[in-house]
C-alpha cells in the first residue's frame, strides 16, 4: 500500500511540475523560444507573492489575484522590449539573452530579499488532508493538481476555441503569412508571453506554499519543467500534464527506495523517455 500511496503522491506532485512546464511549452509552441529564465521567473512570482502577503496581509492564494496580472504585464513588456529583438532564424540569441535574464533576476532577488530561504504560509491548508479509500491525500497537493488540470484545460480551450488561440497557432505555423491576416506577430508574441507568465505566477505561488525557496531555486524548477515538457511531447498541453505526472511518480517512487534517489529517479525516467521516444510520449499530431 505504501507504494500505491507514493505513486499517488507523485501524481499530485506532477501537477506542480505541469504548472512549471505549461508556460515553457506554450512559448516554445508559439514562438520557438527556449526560455532559460523560466525557472527564475517562477521564483520571482513566489517572491512577488511573498511581498503581496507581507504588504496586504492576505492569504497566499488570494495574492494570486495581484501576482498573476503583474507577471502577465511583465511578460508582455519583456517580450515587446527585449525578447522580440532576439527572435529570428538563429536559436542562439534568445538562449543567451534569457540566460542573462536568469542571472539578472537571481541577483536582483538576492539584493532585494537576501539569500535566506523563504516560504509562503498558507495556514491549515498545508497540513489538511482528505481520506480517499485507505489513502490520505494532502489538500494542498490535491488543490495543486486540480489547478494544473484547470489551467491546462483553459489553455487548451483558449488555443483551439478562441480567436486569440487561432492567432497563436497561425503565427506559430507561418509568421509571415499570419501578418497578411492583420496579425502583428510582435503583439501576438507579447500576448503569448503574458499568458505564459500568468501561468508561471500560479506555479510560483503553489511552489512557495509547498516548499521553501531562495533566489537560486529557479534552475531546479527549469529542469523539472523541461523534463515534463520533453516527456509529454512538445506542443501537447495534456502531454505536458502527463509528463509532469510521470516525473512526479518517478521521483516519489525513487524516494521510496531511498530518499537520496528522489531527483535521480526523475532524471532517469526523463533519460529513458528521451532515449526510447525522443519526440516524447504524446507529441502533437499535425495534419
Amino acid at each position: 500500500m505504501d507504494w500505491v500511496n507514493a505513486a499517488v503522491q507523485g501524481m499530485l506532485l506532477g501537477g506542480l511540475y505541469a504548472l512549471f512546464a505549461a508556460g515553457l511549452s506554450l512559448i516554445f509552441g508559439v514562438m520557438r523560444l527556449v526560455n532559460i529564465a523560466h525557472g527564475d521567473l517562477i521564483v520571482l512570482a513566489s517572491y512577488l507573492g511573498l511581498t503581496v502577503v507581507w504588504a496586504l496581509d492576505v492569504h497566499p492564494l488570494a495574492a494570486l489575484l495581484i501576482v498573476v496580472p503583474i507577471m502577465a504585464l511583465l511578460g508582455y513588456v519583456l517580450q515587446r522590449v527585449v525578447l522580440n529583438q532576439t527572435l529570428g532564424d538563429d536559436l542562439l540569441p534568445p538562449l543567451l539573452v534569457t540566460f542573462g535574464l536568469s542571472v539578472i533576476i537571481q541577483n536582483l532577488l538576492l539584493q532585494g530579499y537576501t539569500a535566506d530561504p523563504q516560504k509562503l504560509n498558507a495556514g491549515s491548508i498545508e497540513t489538511a488532508s482528505v481520506a480517499v479509500g485507505s489513502l490520505q491525500l494532502g489538500l494542498l497537493p490535491l488543490l495543486t493538481f486540480v489547478t494544473a488540470i484547470v489551467v491546462i484545460a483553459g489553455l487548451q480551450w483558449m488555443f483551439y476555441c478562441t480567436e486569440l488561440g487561432r492567432g497563436f497557432r497561425a503565427v506559430s505555423d507561418n509568421q509571415e503569412i499570419a501578418q497578411l491576416m492583420g496579425l502583428n506577430r510582435r503583439h501576438v508574441f507579447g500576448l503569448a508571453m503574458a499568458l505564459a507568465l500568468g501561468v508561471t505566477a500560479i506555479a510560483g505561488i503553489f511552489l512557495g506554499i509547498r516548499t521553501s525557496f531562495d533566489p537560486a531555486a529557479g534552475a531546479g524548477r527549469l529542469i523539472f519543467g523541461f523534463e515534463a515538457v520533453i516527456i509529454g511531447g512538445l506542443g501537447n498541453l495534456w502531454g505536458t500534464l502527463a509528463g509532469g505526472v510521470i516525473l512526479g511518480i518517478a521521483q516519489t517512487l525513487g524516494a521510496k527506495i531511498d530518499p537520496g534517489y528522489q531527483l535521480l529517479a526523475g532524471h532517469i525516467a526523463f533519460l529513458i523517455v528521451l532515449a526510447v521516444r525522443p519526440q516524447g510520449l504524446f507529441p502533437r499530431v499535425s495534419g
Binding site: E163, R166, G167, A170, I177, M181, G182, G287
Partner: peptide, 19 residues
C-alpha cells in the same frame, strides 16, 4: 497557397476575416 497547417479549413477562412 501557404495555408496554416494547424488550422482546419474553416479556421483558415475565419482567420482571413479576423479584421
Amino acid at each position: 497557397r501557404q495555408l496554416f497547417p494547424s488550422l482546419s479549413v474553416e479556421e483558415n477562412l475565419q482567420i482571413g476575416g479576423r479584421l
